[in-house]
Amino acid sequence: MTHAAPPSYVDSARRTVRMEAAAVAALEERIGREFAHACELLLATRGRVVVTGMGKSGHIGTKIAATLASTGTPAFFVHPGEASHGDMGMITGDDCVLALSNSGSTKEVVMLLPLLKRLGTPLVSMTGNPASTLAQAADAHLDSGVATEACPLDLAPTSSTTTALVMGDALAIALLEARGFTAEDFAFSHPGGALGRKLLLMVEDVMRSGPELPRVAPETPLGEALLEISAKGLGMTTVVDGDRLEGVFTDGDLRRAIDARIDINETRIGDLMTRQGRTITEGMLAAEALRIMEENRISALVVVGDGGEPVGVVTLLGLLQAGIA
């Protein structure tokens, strides 16, 4: 009895990658007038882009809807089977439907066509068969077809789902650029991510203020100032005359004072402080505060109000804890 040779996992994987890469590369020549028309329809949508598809196409459609929504095109996914049992109420004439089906004849998707026509909802289809029912019924058709699947049986959706995913990304990015979508807009859609924190978090959100703000007068002896620094736990203190910021006293100033062997009970903090230190305002981005600290090699910045009065302090540790750095 003979046994088949064991499979080469590496050869199989490399073959799959080559086949799917070739399928994706072939998409480029198909992106033309129909693609541009699809973008125009989606861009002109007053409502939302409703993405639908069955099976693996549905999984890809869910991802496409999420990508559209996070890049400036409001979108959501509707399962075509559920749409036939009540969820059609989620689709309006102001929306635009993006329907995925590799064959272009998926029953659950094709069943929606008369309903979409009655609503007057524009339809963009993405199929692997330009002659299919879904492709012919659409206002714009995107050909995401492949010559063969990466599956050796040519059955399991592999290359075809990859090309559909890439075509969806191409749509999303084309619309992003057409809208002038910015990094700040992206951050607003991703407030929990690192980019969102850097582009949305303001100085006023992370500064220490009120009773937490260390503050001493210029005539305060160094010994008393050290007690204020210790009590507030920021490693520095502002030096304030009335409401006017005179300077700051930091650990660097303390090291220089120790080296000079000064009398901590007789020496005024005003004689040891750093004058005209860097300051920022509440309305600045926290990421900008971090940049200033890094460029000047300092660990704290005083936040000043409109009149130049100190209203808070931002520290490097506080920015790290907020996830900015």
Rank of each mutant, 00 (worst) to 15 (best):
D169R: 11
D169F: 13
D169Y: 05
A170M: 10
A170K: 03
L171W: 06
A172T: 14
A172V: 10
A174V: 15
L175G: 01
L175V: 13
L176N: 03
R179S: 10
G180S: 13
G180R: 13
F181E: 06
F181T: 12
F181I: 12
A183K: 05
E184K: 14
D185G: 15
D185N: 07
F186A: 00
A187V: 09
F188N: 02
F188D: 00
S189R: 14
H190S: 05
P191H: 00
P191Q: 07
G192H: 09
G192P: 14
G192D: 02
A194T: 15
L195W: 05
G196Q: 02
G196R: 04
K198E: 05
K198V: 06
L199M: 12
L199I: 01
L199G: 09
L200K: 15
L200P: 13
L201R: 10
L201A: 00
L201V: 02
M202D: 02
M202N: 06
M202S: 01
V203E: 00
E204F: 02
E204S: 12
E204D: 12
E204A: 15
D205L: 14
V206N: 03
V206W: 03
V206R: 00
M207L: 10
R208K: 15
S209R: 06
S209I: 04
S209T: 15
G210D: 07
G210H: 14
P211T: 05
E212K: 11
L213F: 10
L213C: 09
P214H: 00
R215D: 07
V216K: 14
V216H: 08
V216Y: 03
A217P: 08
A217S: 15
E219W: 09
P221Y: 02
P221F: 02
P221C: 07
L222C: 12
G223C: 06
G223I: 07
E224M: 13
E224R: 09
A225K: 07
L226H: 00
L226Y: 05
L226S: 11
L226A: 05
L227D: 06
L227G: 07
I229K: 00
S230C: 09
S230R: 09
A231L: 12
K232D: 00
L234V: 11
G235N: 12
G235K: 05
G235D: 01
M236N: 11
M236S: 03
T237K: 02
T238K: 10
T238R: 01
V239N: 08
V240G: 04
D241C: 11
G242Q: 09
G242C: 11
G242F: 15
R244K: 13
R244G: 14
R244E: 04
L245C: 06
L245S: 13
E246G: 15
E246R: 08
G247R: 01
G247K: 02
V248A: 05
V248D: 02
F249I: 01
T250L: 04
T250K: 15
D251T: 14
D253H: 06
L254Q: 06
R256G: 04
R256V: 09
R256D: 00
A257H: 01
I258D: 08
I258H: 10
D259H: 09
D259E: 04
D259A: 15
A260F: 11
A260L: 14
